[in-house]
Design a protein around this nucleic acid. Structure first.
Length: 130
RNA sequence: UCAGUACUCCGGUUUGUCGCUUUAUUAUAAAUAAAGAGGAAAGUCCGGGCAACAAAGGGUACCAUACUUCUUAACGGGAAGCUGUUCGUGAGGGCAGGGUAGUGUAACAGAAAAUAACCGCUCCGGUUCGCCGGAGUAAGGAUGAAAAGGUAAGGUAAGAGCUUACCGGUACUUGUGGCAACACAGGUAGCCGUACACCCUAUGGGUUGCAAGAUCAUGUACACCGGCGCAUGUAGGACGGCCCGUUCGAUGCCGGGGGGUAGAUCGCUGGAGGCAGUUGGUGACAAUUGUCCAAGAUAAAUGACAAACACCUUGCUUGCAAGGCACAGAACCCGGCUUACAGGAGUACUGCUUAU
């Protein structure tokens, strides 16, 4: 398997039931300005892999353009740093759901968010493999 | 040149790497190509289309609008005009408009805010000669956003539209011009505060919004329909809130039938469309010819990073450095309105005092 930076739709987390389940049962930690929730599920018949949800609350960031900006930054940071996590899940035949929630009330730059995404992915990887 | 007024327009560009959404093609775990946010996409304030449901009728309430003519699918929008008022030196801008009716209110100040006597003026009575009491008086003073039309003469004890002349306003009326709002000219009436609200009149308004709604798959509450039974229009319901009036009408059994939830497809973007020209019109706009088709997501694409250029600000070593680069993100679609907006461009016009 080759390393790919693509981010197609089946790697996005959709569906009210799955999202509700993730927030109800998942493990959480904070890598400020991000709050990360993740959980492993085996019930579904789908292919193994990672599904991600990016969330910027309207209460924190009121302007739509700024919300869009932060979502795009998080998505790019994840897209460029997801490979090791994804590879692990494919090999172990696991389904991993992750939600990133933005907590700060102002904009951050790309470098900070990338750093935190890297930290988060390695931390999740450690938890899963243990 | 500077300051300003009105209207209109633009609101970054290019390259590289890695991606996202839709469409097309192909040799289909994918590749390639094309396209991919706005002037306000915003607020959701008006008006329409579209969709579902509802709907005999009358009265009343409620909400909106309110000069005239035109424009339009429609509008509470727009255009051209009219009148008043107000801001500005000016170009221009803001606000308002139906009623000779009725009712209410008008802060503070002031004697008094509308059937006005505080000072003053005049007359009469008294007087200790300081003034006191009564009556008349809206010419003068002071207050105020606003003080009972203005000027002059006559008149009077003093005054007063009390009378007259001229001027201003109002109402009625005649003529002329204008489609009309209205304007101009004449006549009559001494008729002469203003603002706001209630109010009155006219016109319009069924309800909900694409999470509307349709289809498919999954699937099974009990809406709805038909028949029998019950009842004979009873309890109760419906007709926008109320009244009148009208109308439907119980529960059991049998058959049909497909609610909610999550998913998919349609609705969904070719339209009161854009651009250019011509014609008509003062104009909004209309007619017509040519040409173009350029987003369609759904936990929601339209991006991230890097570099160069352009622009702005500051600094000075005057061509370098540092910093900045607005408001803001489609969600069924249109026409408006309102609000936000770094910087820039154009056209016409104005300037008391040519203002740099």
């Amino acid at each position: 398997m080759h390393q790919t930076n693509k981010f197609p739709k089946n790697e996005k987390l959709c569906g009210e039931i799955r999202i509700g389940k993730l927030f109800a049962e998942g493990n959480a930690f904070i890598a400020y300005p991000l709050r990360v929730v993740y959980s492993l599920t085996e019930e579904e018949k789908q292919d193994a892999g990672v599904k991600v949800l990016i969330n910027v609350p309207k209460k924190k960031i009121k302007k739509a353009t700024q919300r869009n900006r932060i979502k795009r930054l998080i998505r790019e940071a994840y897209r460029l740093n997801k490979f090791t996590l994804q590879k692990n899940c494919m090999q172990q035949n696991q389904i991993l759901h992750i939600a990133f929630t933005y907590l700060a009330e102002n904009l951050s730059d790309y470098k900070l968010i990338e750093e935190k995404i890297k930290y988060s992915t390695t931390k999740i990887l450690q938890h899963i493999t243990q």
